[in-house]
């Protein structure tokens, strides 16, 4: 009898606020575009879901270059929500993603409460499966992160969007706060069905020859393995503070990383920067996570989620 190397497929099935994912791995917003580029390299329907590039009401040009800088075990980016606008997404990108049978998470961004609610309203009748409210982008001057840094603002925007949102609503939280659990509670009270965390940590780098910031935008968002310990700690804090599912992210680049986030309390995980470094990260990490489940004899993911033992 051959050795069992992969977990039975149904072990991986994950329920995320009523939406069935074939596995708990989700491509993180901003690193995967609308999926087309990676689909040229492999069949992207291997992902549990895809969270698309952040969508605003109107097309956004984004920030001037340079938009990326390398850091120890990570990278700093300042793309600034460049996107074609929500209407173009619904018309040109969403039909293709849906036809592929993918679970689509539409990442909604904006500068004002009106913009957020209008973006989500336009997505209401679309086949997008889940709305991810991005109140944590550090790379746009107005809005974005501002909404995500106080419990009252985060709660208010969630409440406003909840009224027009017909899909499950997940709110993406910023780590650039003193009490992320307090913000998570505020958005849960305001009607969020799930929270995803962490977005990038605000940072900057300096070119010592020119004495200018490396990024044209001065600051950017730090991502990659450098932020993983911060993210795992925050996933633990938030998952013990709220009842809604927590989707964890921040530097995940192996199957073992997925397991760490899930043990810390994440029901599913998002993988972002790993895609940029390793174009095959999605299928590779899924394979590694399946082997972990076999080795640990796990046949029910719920026995893994939040199974952290006290020291």
């Amino acid at each position: 009898m051959s050795e069992k190397r992969f977990a039975a497929k149904d072990v991986l099935i994950t329920d995320l606020c009523g939406v069935r994912l074939k596995n708990p791995l989700i491509a993180a917003s901003g690193t995967f575009g609308f999926g087309r580029e990676y689909d040229e390299l492999y069949d992207i329907s291997c992902w549990g879901a895809i969270s698309v590039k952040g969508l605003t009401l109107h097309p956004r040009l984004g920030n001037p270059p340079s938009r990326i800088a390398e850091s120890a075990s990570g990278m700093l980016n300042s793309v600034g929500l460049q996107n074609p606008g929500v209407d173009v997404f619904i018309r040109d990108e969403l039909p293709w993603l849906s036809a592929r049978g993918l679970v689509v998470i539409a990442n909604a961004a904006g500068s004002t409460e009106d913009e957020y609610t209008e973006v989500v309203r336009r997505l209401a009748d679309s086949p997008a499966d889940i709305i991810e409210l991005n109140i944590s982008c550090p790379n746009v001057k107005e809005g974005g992160l501002l909404f995500g840094t106080s419990p009252s603002c985060a709660g208010a925007i969630t409440k406003a969007v909840r009224r027009v949102c017909r899909q499950p609503l997940m709110v993406k939280l910023s780590p650039n706060v003193s009490d992320i659990a307090g913000i998570a509670r505020a958005v849960e009270d305001a009607g969020a069905d799930a929270v995803s965390l962490i977005n990038t940590l605000t940072g900057m780098l300096v070119d010592t020859r020119t004495r200018r910031p490396v990024l044209a935008n001065v600051t950017g968002g730090l991502s990659g393995p450098a932020i993983k310990p911060v993210a795992i700690r925050m996933v633990r804090d938030v998952s013990s503070a709220v009842k809604v599912p927590v989707v964890g992210m921040g530097g995940i680049s192996s199957g073992d990383d997925v397991a760490q986030f899930m043990i810390a309390g994440a029901s599913a995980v998002m993988i972002g920067t790993a895609n940029i470094v390793d174009p095959m990260a999605g299928p590779r990490i899924l394979g590694e996570f399946e082997r972990f489940l076999v080795e640990e004899k796990i046949d029910d993911l719920s026995t893994l989620v939040g199974s952290l033992k006290a020291k």
């Binding site: 575009g33 580029e37 990676y38 990326i68 980016n77 793309v79 940029i276």
Partner: peptide
């Protein structure tokens, strides 16, 4: 330009191009 994914998904390596809308 400084590059990220190299395949067109991450939008970090952009350059300014003239377009019908100006830029």
């Amino acid at each position: 330009e400084r590059m990220g994914c190299g395949v067109g998904a991450c939008l970090v390596c952009n350059c300014g191009i003239k377009s019908p809308d100006g830029f």
